[in-house]
Write a protein that binds this DNA or RNA. Sequence first.
DNA 1: GTTTATTCCAAATAAAATTTGGTCAAAAAT
DNA 2: ATTTTTGACCAAATTTTATTTGGAATAAAC
Lengths: 161, 161
Amino acid sequence: MKGNIKLDATDKKILEILQKNSNITNAQLAKEIGLSPAPTLERVNKLETTGVIKSYHAVIDPAAVGLGVSTFVMVSLKGHNKDNISKFISAIKSIDEVVECHHITGAGDFILKIVCADIAAYQQLMLEKVSNIEVVDSLQSMVILSTFKDSKSLALPNQQA
Amino acid sequence: MKGNIKLDATDKKILEILQKNSNITNAQLAKEIGLSPAPTLERVNKLETTGVIKSYHAVIDPAAVGLGVSTFVMVSLKGHNKDNISKFISAIKSIDEVVECHHITGAGDFILKIVCADIAAYQQLMLEKVSNIEVVDSLQSMVILSTFKDSKSLALPNQQA
DNA sequence: GTTTATTCCAAATAAAATTTGGTCAAAAAT
DNA sequence: ATTTTTGACCAAATTTTATTTGGAATAAAC
């Protein structure tokens, strides 16, 4: 039930613009895509109700709120069975500093993205929370030294419906 | 010049709410934080002008627009000098499918997040674009099988100003 | 204890979103 | 081939929301 929504060039323009800046007014959006406000709004509403647009978020500067350490962590589990995986996932979901958790192919089983205040907080988080999840076997941390690209826009492919 | 902005409990509430849903009306936001619309708006504006809130974005469903493959790629460069690093970064910035690029400690030098249509598109992207960056030494791909957490909200730490 | 800064509210105003009614053109049906 | 239906659109009215204003209350500075 996904991927079968037809998007024309106008819809794509809307998605490109709203991914870059969702605080644009409907009137301005209408002007940029070359339509009047009424059908523009209608299209945006349709994109929302069909689930193409999932949500809208403010992005904050981590440094400005005292979040100085971001990391990726590769996690290997003790067993790869469904039960262990769901135990791991539910434990991870309760840790606020873990902002992403993906099941992956390759070296590890999961990759996490963690954002927290400083190295001390990170150490404590890893020792007291992540390491303590019983099904966790090994952890490999990669500390982010600096971020050169963090686009909030996905490049839209040429539909192959 | 970062991290020295004082945020009280009300500001934090605002940030928590706007990270979760930036499309809330100012009136509703005011109600949720227990203030009237005027000072609420004033606080939001201040958070924007001081750079605490960086931007606002719509999040789209990758599957709904035909983006079926997401990966992390660990990249090692041939040399770790400034010149090679800046060559790599500028090449990466021009590839739309690369949505994130972080300089990291640990196994590789950089980690990328890539989102594209399918495995064929991914292969082509890697072969024709990423591998072709001259300073790239080795690449290790991790394909995302499924995503269990992708929070757009950072957990705000207790200020230590 | 006065002044100065903030922070806030209620109410007025301005701007924006949303609805409405109807036109037009393309596609489907007859 | 003509009619009907459908979908997308626009202009303008209406409703909702954002924003400004002026002033009160509070707390910090002097």
